[in-house]
Amino acid sequence: MPDFDAEPETPLQQLIRHWMNERHAPDILPWQGEVLDGLLNHINRQSTTVNLLRGDPDSSEDEHFRIVLAQTEIERVKFVVRSYIRTRLYKIEKYARYVARTPQIQERLSQAELQHAQTFAKLTEDHFSVSVLQALPEHQRSLEDASPFTPPMITEPDKSRAVFVHALNDCPAVRLPDGTTLEIKKGYIVLTPYAVVEELLAFGSVELV
């Protein structure tokens, strides 16, 4: 188990943690622009160095395998970056119409993501309207009906979905759905609904595993 007291997390470890959190959380988490920019810059610098060394005809065999190692690592980091972005993209498209009308969640998206969500939401709505809704009687055309006993027409993240939580620090007590409270100590692993640990996760006291 990584000991977080011993050494501060490297940017890559941070991204891996955020990547896993994003994969497991039902909601869209805040965009980690800073971590990502830092790593992307690092990838660029490393790639430039590798290319320079590769172009050098005098490089020895010793040099050659260092290049291979550096390239392997670049590919590994790129994989994590891509998977992180694709995870968000999946959620953003799934909840596009919810994102388009909820300002609180918009703050958690990057500029490009927000734009994509809005365009995507509009495209879906136009498509529904052109292919079916136009042909229906006026009062059935709405995409926002909130009638009882039917699921809502706008897909929202299901915050009651359970997640596996690993505590990185001792956490203050949280209130459980059954009314009792739970204190998660450092190192504990708990299965609990996402809504219970949402704040702890935003605070960085826990990670999802």
Partner: peptide, 27 residues
């Protein structure tokens, strides 16, 4: 139950194995 299950010392691969079923059950 619907609110919490403590799983001390459970490991990463084991969590992954039980995840689909446990999450669904709690749901």
């Amino acid at each position: 139950d619907h609110s919490e299950l403590s799983l001390p010392n459970l490991c990463s691969m084991e969590i992954n194995e039980i995840r689909p079923f446990f999450v669904k059950a709690m749901g």
